[in-house]
Amino acid sequence: MADQQMQIGEVAERTGLSLRTIRHYEEVGLLVPSARSKGGFRLYTEVDIERLMTIRHMKPLNFSLEEARELLDILDALQETGATGEDRQRLRGRLESYRQVADARCEALRARLEMAEHFAASLRREPPARD
């Protein structure tokens, strides 16, 4: 399935992203379609879908597009076989810093969700009668 090529509409459906968003990510250099059809249509693979999902998963944690670019560059570099041991160590350190920030932001979101759920539950309770 990794070699299967999909047009942008299928990618949008699979990722939950709009065509406009996918095209924007291409314009800003976060995604390059794996190929183009003879008619000039963008063609994407599972690797491209994974890349888009990484970006999509970063958004609720308020990572910027620049941070997404940096993280994708780190992940790409770690997959390359030419990186030296020192380079790989530096890249792993940067990846770990992203993990720590993501964990902290997830914890903050959990705390906000807990407050929101408490508020929603308070609205479901019957207000006390006034005399």
Score class of each variant (00 low, 15 high):
Ala111Cys: 08
Leu109Asp: 08
Leu109His: 13
Leu65Gln: 04
Glu27Cys: 04
Ala108Trp: 05
Gly39Phe: 05
Glu117Asp: 15
Leu52Tyr: 02
Ile74Asn: 00
Arg130Gly: 10
Ser122Trp: 11
Gln89Leu: 14
Ala104Arg: 14
Leu61Met: 08
Val101Phe: 02
Arg99Asn: 10
Arg20Gln: 14
Arg130Val: 15
Asp48Tyr: 03
Thr15Lys: 01
Asp131Asn: 11
Ala83Gly: 05
Leu19Ile: 14
Gly82Trp: 04
Met58Pro: 01
Gly9His: 11
Arg112Glu: 14
Phe119Asp: 07
Met58His: 06
Leu78Asn: 03
Leu17Cys: 06
Arg14Ala: 10
Asn62Trp: 10
Phe63Cys: 05
Arg69Thr: 00
Ser18Ala: 12
Thr21Glu: 09
Glu80Ile: 01
Glu86Trp: 05
Ser18Pro: 02
Glu86Tyr: 09
Pro33Cys: 10
Arg112Thr: 12
Arg105Gln: 07
Glu86Val: 13
Asp73Tyr: 03
Ala2Gln: 09
Glu114Arg: 06
Leu61Ser: 02
Val32Phe: 07
Ala108Glu: 14
Glu107Trp: 05
Arg14Leu: 11
Gln100Thr: 09
Leu95Tyr: 13
Asp103Cys: 08
Leu31Gly: 00
Leu65Asp: 01
Leu75His: 02
Met58Asp: 02
Ala111His: 09
Thr84Ile: 05
Gly9Gln: 14
Leu72Gln: 01
Ala102Met: 11
Ile8Trp: 01
Glu70Ser: 09
Phe119Val: 12
Glu27Asp: 15
